[in-house]
């Protein structure tokens, strides 16, 4: 995947055949988990933290629903066959949606793996679920990097 060109409102990428297939498969995995863990505070000195945290959970649940709704249309509309693979054209909002969705998959996969410090190794022997989460985490990171850095 490489960035072909961009301006302030549009980014055009070229993907190889396999990359297009992997990206579609990856986006279809979202959301990996029904709910997401989120804390509003770590220090516990805000008496209103429980109420704020409840609002945060509601906000994030709504946000993930919005991402899911947008994601299902996004690739169908914006990932098109190219000369040797695929062409992906994204406006600014679509780029952010795709990045957030991919990173949600990456972080939730990392949680499922037990939040390892070292992302390059798996606990021996890895289960099938470990292998799946490991590959999802690495693939999501690959596409995030390419989308941001071109």
């Amino acid at each position: 995947m490489k960035l072909l060109k961009h301006n302030s409102s549009e980014w055009k990428y070229e993907l190889e055949q396999k990359e297009g297939m992997f990206l579609r498969a990856l986006v279809a995995e979202f959301p990996l988990t029904a709910a997401t863990a989120a804390k509003i505070s770590r220090m516990g000195t805000d008496p209103k933290a429980p109420e704020r945290e409840r609002l945060l959970h509601e906000s994030l649940a709504q946000h993930r629903q919005d991402l899911k709704r947008q994601a299902s249309k996004l690739l169908a509309a914006r990932l098109k066959p190219g000369k040797a693979g695929w062409r992906l054209s994204l406006n600014g909002n679509e780029r952010e949606v795709l990045l957030q969705l991919l990173n949600d998959i990456r972080v939730e996969s990392w949680h499922a793996l037990g939040e390892p410090e070292n992302l390059d190794t798996l606990p021996p022997p890895p289960s099938e679920a470990d292998l799946r989460h490991y590959h999802l985490m690495q693939l999501a990171g690959y596409f995030e990097y390419k989308i941001v850095e071109g």
Binding site: A38, K39, I40, S41, R42, M43, T45, D46, K48, R52, L55, L56, S59, L60, H63, L99, Q100, N103, D104, R106, V107
Partner: peptide, 23 residues
């Protein structure tokens, strides 16, 4: 202030960064 801080935390966590607000 509380409202703006909450807004930023919601935004950052929407991107899955580990962000919190502390008094």
């Amino acid at each position: 202030g509380a409202e703006k801080a909450e807004f930023y935390v919601h935004q950052l966590q929407g991107y899955k960064l580990q962000a919190t607000m502390e008094p």
